[in-house]
Design a protein around this nucleic acid. Structure first.
Lengths: 340, 340
DNA sequence: CTGAAAGCGCTTACAG
DNA sequence: CTGAAAGCGCTTACAG
């Protein structure tokens, strides 16, 4: 008899819920219920199902499950790059959280291209993800697309004027302004800005310059633009520009701690001391900022707070709660360390 | 009339293929064909469909599509960590390639846990991914699970004895051996090994030690174990151990270039010169290895070759080709730079 | 080149 | 606590 049941599961196709049900002697509906919520099934029945799952080597088809339930248990995460990314800590935290609760992550690499970002958003929507977590600017026509899909859309790291969904981040305009004040208060007179390519970094730069001039910092600061991902290759070029200036800048403000690290290494290799001959500031308070020698003066953004708020919103949305389209300002603070 | 058609698309649910078909005046089968392969549909028909898609704001349901076609157009990528990962370049390359060909990436973070890896593999199989690209060891019972699923399974970065699928990597045993020979040939006598937690790194370490003793390098090398992700925090502790030894080691071999970078920064902060007072070697030839000051002597592994081979296998498998369960050895080579 | 229809493998009211 | 059945939104032989 048991042998006959075995024969009911041909080996040339993946076992289905029905195969499990047949072996367990219940309906596929009951198996489905047990798999999704064991408590609502009688204990003895559950035991038989468990055995059957094991026996036939059942692996649920999440495509079918998602289609039927219209919950994909998948969240899209869109970031520019993987290497030396200021977002790695946040993404890592969220991914682990998500995985722990049975949700998988679709990773999208946008670069700095709005077109690629839009394409990835469309791909995510096609997969009917439960949420999209995005770090970059999106095309104007996407606002309507996102809105109509009713998909939870969360922008992190910045606070756009009129976001199509949630935004969890901080004001880059304010950060640029405060950076200018900080630099001035430390007595530096000739700042040099190494700005990573990207709308936010440029926002900070412009705001820095405006404030610098407003508080009488003097002439317009020098600066340069570098691609992301950002490290030594760019740092070397940027440092060369710094050196070429006469008088040389006395402080370099970088778009990321990785860039700052690169500038420090370059400066020291050139025989300069940091911050004695040249001060350097980072951005983001990545793990390395506190561990480099010298430790890096930077702007701390509470990544774990962002990750936590994102997860909270995703969870509440998953529980059916209506998420208002508001913003959460997690702020930032300048951390003075050795490098500036 | 046209208004009547508009009414056929209620705004309280996402538009389906049928909505598009209705507006275009064709069957949903034709719309499906057009979307998946425009050439097989008459041009005029295609034009009408294009307009209809636009008009109703259609976004295909990839869950339904995947279920019907049993091709999810999704590939799972499993790595230990995101931060300072030796795999970032490879993953970034593959992700961009995949995205360009309409395939999305499911990202899984395994840490060094086999249990988490196995769980992520099951999740990937549940999503009926077209392939799983994995970087770590897997549980023994997974071999059968993977085999029975007939899913393309590709292990990268190493060459296991009896892989459950494809393997594209190199021999860590050989690398450890060659490292020992290299270090000896450079005249170093007191190596110190900073081994990242993980089976491969340990394989290299053991092989290094065996060879070191075989060629009469002398006593057993000192060493320490660090967690991944690996940088300054660990480097600091490791460097402290190095300093404490008397006589002090003359070369430190690190499990990654990031670790090597950390050791170099620590050593220089302590007033030592690299490689004069202490030589340092990395592993992996990450971008930073050639850009640090001093540049880092390391073991180059051709990541773009690995990415390329993976993509080739994935594509061929997607085209219906039968992939043999063999291995591709991409080799490695030691690159002598300034740090050792 | 196109349509009618079966089928992919689940979930979930509905009923008991 | 459990089952029968409809339905999720596509794809794809089959037929014309």
């Amino acid at each position: 008899m048991s042998d006959e049941l075995d024969m009911a599961v041909p080996s040339d196709r993946a076992p289905t819920l029905d195969d499990v049900a047949q072996r367990a002697g219940v309906s596929s509906a009951t198996v489905s219920r047990f798999l999704n919520n064991p408590k609502i099934v009688a204990e003895a029945t559950g035991e038989r199902i468990r055995e059957a799952v094991q026996h036939v080597g059942y692996i649920p088809n999440a495509l079918a499950g998602g289609l039927a339930s219209s919950r994909s248990r998948m969240v899209a995460v869109l970031i520019p790059h993987l290497t030396d990314s200021i977002f790695n800590d946040i993404i890592e935290r969220m991914t682990e959280d998500l995985n722990a609760s049975g949700t998988n992550v679709m990773l999208g690499l946008t670069g700095t291209s709005v077109a690629r970002t839009d394409e990835l958003i469309r791909a995510a929507l096609a997969r009917r993800v439960d949420a999209i977590i995005s770090t970059g600017p999106i095309g104007g026509e996407m606002f309507e697309v996102i809105r109509r899909s009713r998909t939870l859309f969360i922008q992190i790291w910045e606070l756009p004027e009129d976001p199509p969904g949630m935004a969890i981040g901080f004001s880059h305009r304010d950060a640029g302004r405060d950076l200018a004040r900080f630099v001035a208060s430390r007595g530096y007179r000739r700042p040099f800005l190494v700005t990573a390519d990207g709308s936010r970094a440029k926002l900070r730069r412009d705001s820095f310059i405006a404030e610098w001039q407003a508080i009488g910092g003097g002439e317009e600061p020098h600066g340069t633009l570098v691609d992301i991902p950002s490290r030594y290759g760019h740092a070397r070029r940027a440092f060369a520009e710094v050196r070429r200036l006469d008088p040389m800048p006395d402080v370099v403000l970088c778009g990321s701690d990785y860039l700052a690290q690169g500038i420090i290494v370059e400066a020291e290799a050139a025989g300069l001391t940091v911050p004695g001959d040249l001060a350097v500031m980072g951005f983001g308070n990545s793990r390395i900022a506190g561990e480099m020698r010298p430790t890096i003066t930077t702007v701390d953004v509470d990544g774990s707070r962002i990750a936590q708020e994102v997860m909270s919103v995703v969870r509440r949305h998953g529980a059916g709660e209506d998420i208002p389209h508001n913003s959460i300002d997690v702020g930032y603070r300048i951390i003075a360390r050795e490098s500036a």
